Every structure is written in C-alpha cells, then in structure tokens.
Simulated scan of single mutants.
Amino acid sequence: MKRAFFAVCLVVLGAAWAQFTPRNPECIAPAGAGGGWDFTCRSVAQVMQDLRLVPQPIKTTNVTGGGGGVAYANVVTQRSDDANLIVAASPATTVRLAQGQYSRFTERDVRWLGAVAADFGLVAVKADAPWKTMQELVAAWKADPSKIAVGGGSAVGGQDHMKVLLLGRAAGIEPRAIKYVPFDGGGEALTSLLGGFVQVFAGDASELRAQVQSGTVRVLGVMSPRRLGGVYASVPTLKELGYNVEWVVWRGFYVPKNMPPQAYEFWARALREVERSPEWARVREQNALGQFFMAGAEFQVFIDRQVNQFRNLSRELGIIR
C-alpha cells in the first residue's frame, strides 16, 4: 500500500515538473551588483543554464533599497503569482523580517523555495591597513572606537551590522560606541573600503574572493565553525582567536506566494539538480562555500525558526524592543 502511494506521488511530481516550462525566467538580487545576493542569482542561474534545466538564460535584475525591502514589497504586491521569478535570499532577509523592517510584510507573504550552499561571515581590511591581525585591530578599536568605521552591505540592524555587534560584544566593546556604516549590498561596502571611506569590512567569503586573490584586501578572521579552504586557507576563525562568534550564511531563494504549484515544483527540483551537480561543486570550491541544502516544506520550517531566533537575538542586542 505504501509503495503504491509513493509511486502515485512520484507520478504527480513528475507530471508537475513536465507541465511547467519557464518563459523569460528572472532572478531578483535585492541589492546592487557585487554582493552576496547578486552572486547567488548569477551563479545559480549559470549552473541551471549549463545543466539545461531552463530553456532560456535566467536574467538577473538588481533591485536595490531597504536592505532587500524594496524587492520584497515589489514581489508581494506586484508579482505575487509570477511563475517565472525567483528571488535571492539569505539570513540578511530573515533578520530584517524578524525586526519588522519590511513594512507590514512578514515571512508568510512569500513562499520559501530552498537553499543550496552555506557562505560564512568575515572581517577584512585593506591590504595596506596598519592592522595585520585581528588582535591588532581589536586593540585599536577598543582604544578609540570613533576612529574605526565598519562598513557592511546591510542596513542598520541588518545581518552585517549584527555580525559587527556580536564581534564587538565578544571583544568587550560597548555596542553604542561601534561606528557602523550601512551600504546597499556588499559590493558598495567593498568599494567604500577600497576607497578609504571605511576602515573595516564585515561581509561574506563569496564577496571577497577576487579581492583576496588580487591582494587588495586582507582578511583577518572568518566566522565559520572551522577554517575555510582555497584563498582563505590561512585565515583563522574568530573562535580560534578567542572571539566566540560564528555567522553562517545560507544562500537560497524565495518565490511569489501564489506561484502555481507546478512552477514551484519545477524550481525546487531545479535547485536539487543544481546542488547535486559537479558544476555546483566547483562553484562551491572556488568560492569557499560549504554544503547546505534544504528545499520545500523543510526549508519553510527552517525559515520560521530562524526568524524567531533572530527576533530574540535582536532584542538581546538592543536593536528592537
């Protein structure tokens, strides 16, 4: 009986997969070019095309503003049944939802599709900065917090700001003394670091690989459970250095809430095909990403829990009441 039931389920899912073919598919990156959401859209889109999962290239559209809020509102109010749209997301999205920063919208106003990799937070400075180690940076930071501006690709209270607050707390720096400068995406924050407008960059590993390879930045610590590979192999974790801070960044997507079921199944299965492919394994290796896959109902439960966890952490850090 069970075997027959599962066979029927497979037939239904297979039929849904076969019934839908995207037309003019699009991925929204809710910030400017060069950041983590932009990377998520472009890299996954390229692998889907390489695997011939989509009949046309997936267009990446950068929709900036509000720490992802402008894109979120647009999807909810203007494109709520668009079958051809996926939107890049990460803990930066769930942090803002937990804090009520997306206006009246909540995590239940979209449908959560899945995640295909884990990125990791890091702390970096320009290659010619006076601090060679995290300990040197922290010593200067504690001596005079007003002289060190930390830039991140999220709004005040967002993901990158929370990384900075957690590091500051671990280092014994008064949160109100921390000078955080928000930018609309990691690309803008990195440009500001290289231009000398901020002294420290709090971002993610996938955002900095090219700059590390070219020697324009120095990464002082990563917020991963263990050391990363590739260009980050010699960089210590913050825990190694005595700062009990980790920040794991899942890379994934949400879709319009009223997307037809057959379209949702198509995109969920496409993500599974991407995650299993050698092409995606190479992308992960090149960008120091970890394995992390979750899709469908399991991912929805994960999102609900994470929003609740971030709401509690935001209260603990004094970001919301």
Rank of each mutant, 00 (worst) to 15 (best):
L51N: 10
A89K: 02
V12C: 15
S90P: 00
G152Q: 10
L220C: 07
A98K: 10
G66P: 04
S192N: 15
S192T: 12
P182H: 01
S90I: 07
A270L: 08
R176K: 12
L193T: 09
A15T: 02
R218G: 11
Y264R: 06
C9W: 11
T237K: 07
F310K: 06
T133W: 13
E298V: 06
G151R: 06
E207H: 12
G66W: 01
W267R: 04
P260H: 12
I86F: 01
G221F: 03
W250S: 13
S43R: 03
N62D: 09
G186F: 01
A233V: 07
L238P: 05
E240R: 02
S224K: 12
G66K: 00
D119A: 06
R111D: 04
L122H: 05
V54E: 07
P260Y: 14
N84W: 06
Q306P: 04
Q300M: 01
K126T: 15
T216W: 05
T93L: 15
P236H: 01
F105E: 15
V248S: 04
T237V: 03
G242C: 10
P22Q: 13
F293R: 08
G296A: 08
F302T: 05
M162N: 05
L208F: 05
W17I: 11
R315A: 05
E285D: 14
F299P: 01
E316R: 02
H161P: 01
V8P: 09
V255M: 11
P55M: 10
C27H: 11
A83V: 05
E207I: 14
V95N: 08
I86W: 01
L166D: 03
A29Q: 11
T237N: 07
D304Y: 08
A83M: 11
N74C: 11
S90V: 05
G153F: 02
D160G: 09
D304E: 14
P236W: 00
I319Q: 11
R23T: 12
R284W: 07
G121E: 14
V87M: 01
M48E: 08
R284G: 11
S103Q: 15
Q78K: 13
Q78S: 14
G168L: 08
V198S: 13
G67A: 11
G66L: 01
M223Q: 12
G215W: 09
G195C: 12
S154A: 01
W131Y: 09
V307Q: 07
K132T: 12
L165G: 12
A149W: 13
D81K: 08
M294K: 10
P91Y: 09
N62V: 10
D204A: 15
V200H: 08
R169C: 05
L220T: 04
S206C: 10
P260R: 10
A233W: 06
